[in-house]
């Protein structure tokens, strides 16, 4: 045997950072204050959404003898809304639905978009073109427009809104993942797997997918932010799945007329909640993006 031992005389400085890039990215991200604030905001609003109904003093659609647009009082901490329901109780009750729908829609868009993006990038042939042209067709509508068209015909239902938001999220995810995966499928380790004759699906899942996890995580946060905004906007436009239920977006729409009066809480509470939620997910996404960029730089410096 040769006398050679390349054995690490000194470890590379960046080795520790990029050991497990997806996990390392999250750890790096969590060291940034913006990520921590974001996580705290999201956690707070998730708590409100989960625990809210339990601690609400009144039912969301309960009438308890106060006039519409009553100012805050001991009976209704934030006053009553345009038809005399308790603003505080409706606020506590209105977060769950939007959160569940946004998470489901985003997850749907991510799974479909990742599948399409990876397949297109790896195919490098007519399939790539066909898939991406199909994505272009969906991209030719603003997200909210397509949701509106569908809802206009069938009517607003939870399933339909999740489907509409998820399907319009798909092409946006697909483009990002395809872009990231295009660089990966050209790398030699994919060729090495091909030369060994590894099945395509295993190449995609084991060789390519783990290498696009960082952009996928960043994109997931961005998409969640937009999905929340989109679903809230639909409700604001009067297309909540349940027109009588408590829903933050719907609350803003319904109580808008009271804005000029001394009873703005029906608008302000849900608006602050939506703003903090989207800012929270936005901050987390930005933290992830920064961490990912930092890791990539470290790798590029070699």
């Amino acid at each position: 045997m040769s006398t050679l031992t390349d054995a690490g005389v000194t470890p590379e400085p960046e080795a520790a950072v990029s050991r497990r890039p997806a996990g390392a990215m999250m750890r790096t991200a969590l060291r940034l204050w913006r990520t921590r604030i974001g996580v705290a905001l999201v956690a707070l609003l998730v708590l409100v959404a989960i625990l809210g109904p339990a601690i609400a003093p009144h039912g969301p659609s309960e009438y308890f003898g106060l006039a519409p647009n009553a100012p805050p009082s001991g009976k209704a901490y934030f006053g009553t809304d345009y038809i005399g329901q308790d603003v505080w109780s409706r606020f506590l009750d209105g977060g769950r639905e939007i959160l569940v729908m946004a998470v489901l829609a985003t997850a749907l868009g991510l799974v479909l978009g990742t599948a399409v993006g990876l397949t297109a990038a790896y195919a490098r042939n007519i399939l790539d073109d066909v898939l991406m042209r199909a994505m272009d067709v969906i991209l030719a509508f603003p997200q909210i427009m397509l949701a509106l068209v569908v809802v206009a015909t069938v009517g607003a239902s939870e399933t339909l809104i999740v489907l509409a938001v998820g399907l319009t999220t798909m092409p946006r995810v697909a483009r990002i993942i395809r872009g990231a995966a295009q660089a990966i499928v050209e790398r030699d380790f994919v060729a090495a797997a091909e030369a060994l004759g590894l099945p395509r699906i295993r190449i995609l899942m084991r060789e390519v997918l783990p290498n696009v996890l960082s952009p996928l995580l960043v994109e997931a946060n961005l998409r969640l932010t937009y999905s929340i905004g989109l679903i809230a906007s639909l409700a604001f436009l009067g297309l909540a799945p349940n027109p009588n239920g408590a829903d933050w977006g719907l609350m803003i729409q319904q109580n808008r007329v009271a804005l000029g009066t001394d009873q703005p809480w029906g608008v302000l509470l849900p608006m602050i909640a939506i703003a903090l939620l989207t800012i929270g997910t936005g901050l987390v996404g930005d933290g992830f993006a920064r961490a990912a960029a930092g890791i990539d730089r470290g790798r590029g410096a070699e």
Binding site: T225, G229, S233, T278
Partner: peptide
């Protein structure tokens, strides 16, 4: 970052 995260109806109503 903060402004990009906000849905535009939140921005609009806030301005109002």
């Amino acid at each position: 970052l903060l402004l990009a995260a906000l849905p535009e109806f939140v921005v609009g109503v806030t301005l109002v």
